[in-house]
C-alpha cells in the first residue's frame, strides 16, 4: 500500500493536514480522529508532524529530517506527541489522500 511522504523543508506548519484528515474521516470538524498530529514547540521554533501509518509505524516529520519508527522502537519526543497512539492509522483515504490534495506547499506526497 502507498504511504505518505513528508518533506519538512516545504512544510509551513499550517496544520491543515491534521484538520482535513479528521474532517475526511468523520465528516465534521474535529482533530481528535486524525491520523496526522501536528506537533509544535513554539518557544523552540520547532514544528513538524507525526503520522500513524498502517502496521503501527510512525512517520516522524521533524524539521531536520524524516524518521520511520517501527512498532516497538522508542519514538522519543515529548509527552505532547504521545496521543498519536490513540489515533487511527492512515488509510490513504482509500486512494486519494485528502491531506496531499490540501497541502498548499507539496510537503505531503503519496509515495
Amino acid at each position: 500500500m502507498a504511504q505518505l511522504k513528508y518533506y519538512p523543508e516545504r512544510c509551513i506548519g499550517c496544520a491543515g493536514c491534521e484538520s482535513v484528515c479528521g474532517f475526511q474521516r468523520e465528516s465534521l470538524l474535529s482533530t481528535m480522529t486524525s491520523s496526522i498530529m501536528f506537533h509544535v514547540e513554539e518557544e523552540r521554533g520547532y514544528y513538524g508532524i507525526i503520522v500513524k501509518r498502517q502496521g503501527g509505524e510512525l512517520l516522524l516529520g521533524k524539521p531536520e529530517g524524516v524518521e520511520i519508527k517501527r512498532p516497538g522502537e522508542a519514538a522519543g519526543g515529548s509527552a505532547a506527541a504521545k496521543p498519536i497512539a490513540m489515533r487511527p492509522a492512515c488509510d490513504m483515504c482509500k486512494g486519494k489522500p485528502k491531506c496531499v490534495a490540501y497541502c498548499p506547499t507539496g510537503a505531503l506526497e503519496e509515495g
Binding site: I12, G13, C14, A15, G16, S19, G45, Y47, P63, P104, T105
Partner: peptide
C-alpha cells in the same frame, strides 16, 4: 529562522 503560517493558511 523557519517560516510559519497560521492554521490552514497557505501564506506563511
Amino acid at each position: 529562522g523557519r517560516k510559519r503560517a497560521c492554521f490552514s493558511c497557505p501564506y506563511p
